[in-house]
Amino acid sequence: MFEARLVHGNLLKKVLDAIKDLLTEASWDCADSGIQLQAMDNSHVSLVSVNLRAEGFDKYRCDRNLIMGMDLTSMSKILKCSASDDIITMKAQDNADTVSFIFESPSQEKVSDYQMKLMNLDQDHLGIPETEYACVIKMPSGEFARICRDLSNFGENIVIACSKEGVKFSAAGDIGTANVKLAQTSSVDKEEDAVVIDMQEPVTLTFACRYLNMFTKATPLSPQVSLSMHPDVPLVVEYAIGEIGQIQYFLAPKIGD
């Protein structure tokens, strides 16, 4: 028996919004410790990793490890049937070929039950090595989304250069060039407005705008985003999922000239 109940059901809807443009189908690995998803996009350029801790749920039970392969478009359609303040429960029997989504209104006066067929997915699992990143940039997630959107008008790539002066985002194309520089903030009223740069050595890497823009679909999950960079290693873009976990996007840098 698997059962996971989330009073802040809205978080699950936001997680789906954050992955459904990048992934069409994926497996949710359910274990005693929580729920994880790891999948590459269709082009195998990026990797998405979602981690939802068991203790973050209001009720969590997983008697046996369970892999639930899901069509994420279908899962998203079902979650769209819930209201933003609904309590969401996911439920499956051991060895079941369906999963149930139960939506309860806060007053408990409306309860909806949706069942979805599970899929057998044969997906490659990748090992992500422990890395001490040369630069870790923490910044407002809305600002990052804005920069990615704005610079996408100039070219298909964004160059991210992190140095002790700050972080510079650049793009170049037919219409001209664009540069956005952010310095570390000295003092802010709200912690979520801060730009914090932890740099061991300067790093400059180039990334495809298309993927960065898809990662920013996670912006509603968290007011802050962290970007971890290291020479010749994939970028990690990480958003917290409320108090219950995090979503990480890994993107291979563009190489050569």
Binding site: H44, V45, L47, L126, G127, P129, N157, A252, K254
Partner: peptide, 14 residues
């Protein structure tokens, strides 16, 4: 132009 490698070039299956 720069080339786009796949993510599996960096992360081994496991």
């Amino acid at each position: 132009a720069k080339k786009q490698p796949t993510i599996s070039k960096f992360f081994a299956p496991g």
